[in-house]
Design a protein around this nucleic acid. Structure first.
Lengths: 205, 205
DNA sequence: CGGTTTGCCGACTGATCAGTCGGTATTGTT
DNA sequence: AACAATACCGACTGATCAGTCGGCAAACCG
């Protein structure tokens, strides 16, 4: 019997963290179960006790990661009051010192490349995006309610804004030599402000 | 001896095409040399005669693909005169009927995910982006020379524009259920027009 | 106490796959 | 004709790896 009842939860997060770190470092295609065992400090059999197969583990790891990122986004955004500032609040994406992001970029790129061939991963991606959209949509609706933004399609606009963030972030991460952090931050601000400009009832400070 | 002297070139493109199609269908991580042999109508030994290793073949295939896409972009763009229309000329990206693009999206996503862990692929990505940037930069410079755009940083702006295209295209491809083609086209036009708005000397028709 | 369950170990197995190599056939050269 | 080089074949090899399984130890149960 387990000494502590929460052992299972502890082990699972321990394994999921190990999996995420290993995948982020080597890429999902190059990761073996042995690598993850080593990173998690468990044996093959021990790991098998908690996750039946590699696929199960990978999916759980990716899902766990996206949940974590969503929490972050939500917390950052709700700490801000002005709707326009909320739309622009994702500058924390451009910080590789942040451990979540450091592993996050490779993970997201891996998930997207798998999603191109796998229905299940497409769903994971879809769900993640939808969370993101819900947050941005909230800010847009609030702005309309407050009379700051004119009438617009909040979902479509939210999708455009998040796609802009993602496009710029991908460049910034994969080719930092040509895409500085200043470029990234200036770019997303200009792009999003430019997009919102026609809908603003008053100039944004 | 070869019956026809161009045999080598023929075989190589035949193999590269087979590789690209197979990778696009299954994802680079799931493709075996045997798969490619079958697709190319050659045996293992036959294929080995032209490409020494899987890595060599993959790199050659990806590079060949990016060259092809660059050609396309260049041709499309030079057929257009107005600089602002040139910036907006990439709506051909949003057409899955196009065979190049049909295989192109999975390929690009694969390359990006590999690039996250592999210097060589980062270079391939970097070079591809730079080609793209050069084209957009040309349009921006022409616009400035013509007095249509006010003074701006052409490289940084070109990078922002192409990042917007890519962000929107990725969404459109991976989650079409939530990102319609109309959304994609409206989005990139709004975003790019919004971005350029402050620099326009006269309203764009 | 004996018996059972849980947690974990790591050697083993079977499958997969990249790359090799001896061979054949066709074309060209002398 | 003899020889050589190129183009291609496919059986084989060695390495890798996911998943299995028998076993052990510690904790709990009756």
């Amino acid at each position: 019997m387990a000494a502590i009842p929460e052992l299972e939860a502890i082990r699972k997060t321990q394994i999921l963290d190990a999996a995420l770190n290993t995948i982020a470092t080597s890429g999902h295609a190059n990761v073996t179960m042995d690598d993850i065992c080593k990173a998690a400090g468990l044996s093959k059999g021990g790991l098998a006790h908690y996750f039946k197969s590699k696929e199960t583990l990978f999916r759980a790891a990716f899902t766990a990661f996206f949940d974590r990122i969503f929490q972050r986004s939500q917390e950052t955004m709700t700490a801000i009051d002005d709707p326009m500032d909320q739309l622009l609040s994702f500058d924390w994406l451009y910080d590789l010192e942040d451990p979540d992001l450091n592993i996050g970029y490779p993970i997201v790129l891996d998930v997207m490349s798998i999603a191109a061939h796998d229905e299940t991963y497409r769903t994971i991606f879809h769900d993640w995006i939808n969370n993101w959209i819900t947050l941005l949509e909230g800010a847009l609706r609030k702005g309309m309610a407050k009379g700051l933004f004119m009438k617009l399609d909040p979902e479509a606009t939210a999708r455009t804004i998040s796609a802009i963030y993602q496009g710029i972030a991908t460049r910034w991460y994969l080719d930092p030599e040509s895409h500085s952090t200043e470029w990234a931050i200036t770019s997303f601000k200009q792009a999003i402000k430019g997009l919102m400009q026609p809908y603003l009832t008053q100039p944004h400070t």
